[in-house]
Design a protein around this nucleic acid. Structure first.
Length: 515
RNA sequence: GGCCCGUUCGUCUAAGGGCUAGGACACCACCCUUUCACGGUGGUGAUACGGGUUCGAAUCCCGUACGGGCUACCA
């Protein structure tokens, strides 16, 4: 493909930077996926960096969880907090001391300033300046003249405060009237007027950087060439552009791509939507250790990683053809960031299940063996014979949209049904039919070969002899073996169940039907 | 409120100035199947609105409406 190479003219390096606040939602995984595909296409590096600059929001175990999710989805980074490269450390909390010097440099160059306002000062500022036409006043060029900072205070006052260790933050000083324009790989030219933007905090009072400073410094030091992130970051892009300009030069800035949002039924997809509408929103189950709240994951819901990747890739991208099913290799070959849409995409769970169904159908019984076995075991069904399990999977996979559907579709092969759907048999049941089944057992006992076709033939033969329509006997046989009106063709079931088990189930059912 | 992004069937989308606006999910009907599905065939269904530019506009421009995002010492 025609690749617009990074101005640094180095290898392509992309990164994903989740915050360990718990859970990894659809949008997050899609960002990783696009990063991953782009890196692989260009023989580049894919980096995982952890955004943990706000320790108060850190949730124990979230980092490991993210790694587990990426592992499952097959999107393992080349450099990550657990598998380091040459640009570590990768946790921002471990990089803390790096950021201050850049913030100080900005102050020295006149692009940023110290601000000594307390949270109460800020709160008061917001209430005094709040009006009907301005519901959320910003700390901007008009307001900064009225606050306690290195612009309003004298140099000696500022020095004294700093020497005394006064709590302070460093804010960017937004230029008065400048147009910031940059190129986005998905949306083209985007521009902002700086006079409408506020003086964002770059370095917090605890010495930690905000995302704005960290993302620029890290991307520079880690030589990131392309930066993909969600559209919700677009409004703060001008801050990052300005920082690049002041600190490292625009020519070294990565190429940006702001990905469209994944929408739920009401706006940006949230984890609440999952519980509300009954579909998973995280890659894997996530239980918040503080609240014990469980958010369902695609993996546990019964999705194959191939399907998950596939449906995610198509949520906001397509290759221009009518193809919808893509393997990882095909995605790697055909994906292009330029073809990603700029509009948000609403997530449709029905379509997601369709993708999974298609992938289940594509897979062989052998490929499905391990995941299905795991699910069955989770439901107290312990298959002992892999070959047998594989045959049952092969027989029923067309009727399963989710891996969890295999529980209902195969359990009767392993556990004889106790409760039978007698209601659908009894109304048409009679002694003639009971007689037929008793005799059919004998036929089975003498069967010369045990396969579905032969079994069906002898079944029909006997029915004709007895003057009963074979069709009227098939449903009862099914209920005898399966317990209800579902499952694959009944003689295939007989074949797999075997002579002895089939006989047993007929006997059991006859006692139920005649009551 | 301000700023930014967006707008093709209910949903995901194709069509980059020129066929009757194509496909998929969902829905409906029929076929297949004496179970439930799969599968097959067909059907309902869209260019937000108003102006321009052009021989010609879903496509380019402007405006309006609507939707979404951001507006924290969160990311």
């Amino acid at each position: 493909m025609a690749l617009s190479l990074h101005p640094m003219n180095k290898k392509v390096r992309v990164r994903f930077a989740p915050s360990p606040t718990g859970g990894l939602h659809l949008g997050g995984v899609r960002t990783v996926l696009y990063n991953y595909l782009f890196a692989k296409q260009n023989n580049g590096d894919f980096i995982l960096r952890i955004e943990d600059t706000d320790q108060s929001r850190y949730v124990a175990g979230a980092e490991e969880y993210i790694m587990d999710c990426l592992q499952w989805a097959g999107l393992v980074p080349d450099e990550s907090p657990v598998k380091g490269g040459n640009y570590g450390p990768y946790r921002q909390s471990e990089r803390k001391k790096l950021y201050r010097q850049y913030a100080e440099q900005l102050v020295a160059d006149g692009h940023a300033y110290y601000a000594f306002d307390t949270p109460e000062d800020l709160e008061q500022m917001r209430t005094t300046f709040r009006t009907d036409t301005n519901p959320s006043p910003q700390y901007d060029r008009a307001v900064r003249e009225k606050m306690r900072n290195s612009i309003t205070l004298t140099a000696t006052e500022v020095k004294k405060l700093l020497d005394n260790g006064a709590k302070h933050v460093i804010r960017i000083k937004m230029p008065t009237h400048e147009t910031v324009t940059f190129h986005d790989m998905i949306r083209g030219e985007v521009s902002f007027d700086t006079s409408l933007l506020d003086d964002k905090v770059l370095l917090k009072a605890d010495g930690m950087p905000t995302y704005h400073l960290a993302v620029v410094v890290d991307d520079y030091l880690m030589e990131i060439s392309h930066a993909f992130r969600g559209e919700e970051w677009l409004p703060s892009a001008p801050v990052h552009i300005l920082l690049w300009k002041y600190l490292f030069g625009l020519e070294k800035m990565p190429l940006w791509a702001h990905l469209p949002l994944i929408l739920g039924p009401n706006g940006k997809l949230s984890k609440r939507d999952g519980a509300k509408y009954g579909f998973p929103v995280f890659a894997m189950n996530w239980t918040d250790p503080n609240t014990n709240e469980l958010v369902e994951g695609f993996r546990e819901k019964g999705f194959l990683p191939e399907a998950f990747i596939n449906l995610l890739a198509l949520l906001g991208w397509n290759d221009g053809s009518e193809q919808e099913l893509f393997s990882r290799e095909e995605l790697q070959e055909k994906f292009s960031i330029e073809r990603v849409h700029s509009g948000g995409a609403r997530f449709d769970y029905e379509k997601a299940k369709w993708f999974n169904h298609e992938w289940i159908k594509r897979k062989s019984g052998n490929e499905l063996l391990a995941p299905v076995k795991e699910i069955l075991q989770g439901n107290a069904i312990i298959p002992t014979d892999d070959l047998f399990l594989e045959k049952t999977i092969e027989l029923v996979k067309d009727r399963c949209s989710l891996l969890t559907d295999f529980v209902q579709q195969t359990s009767f092969f392993f556990i004889a049904p106790v409760e039978l759907d007698t209601a659908s048999v009894k109304p048409k049941w009679n002694d003639g039919k009971a007689d037929f089944f008793n005799e059919f057992k004998t036929v089975l006992g003498n069967a010369s070969s045990w396969d579905a076709v032969t079994l069906e033939n002898s079944f029909k033969e006997l029915a004709t002899q007895k003057n009963i329509k074979p069709g009227e006997l098939q449903l009862p046989l099914r209920v005898m073996l399966v317990g209800g009106k579902f499952g694959p063709p009944v003689f295939n079931i007989v074949e797999l169940l075997g002579k002895e088990e089939t006989g047993k189930r007929i006997d059991y059912a006859l006692t139920k039907f005649s009551i």
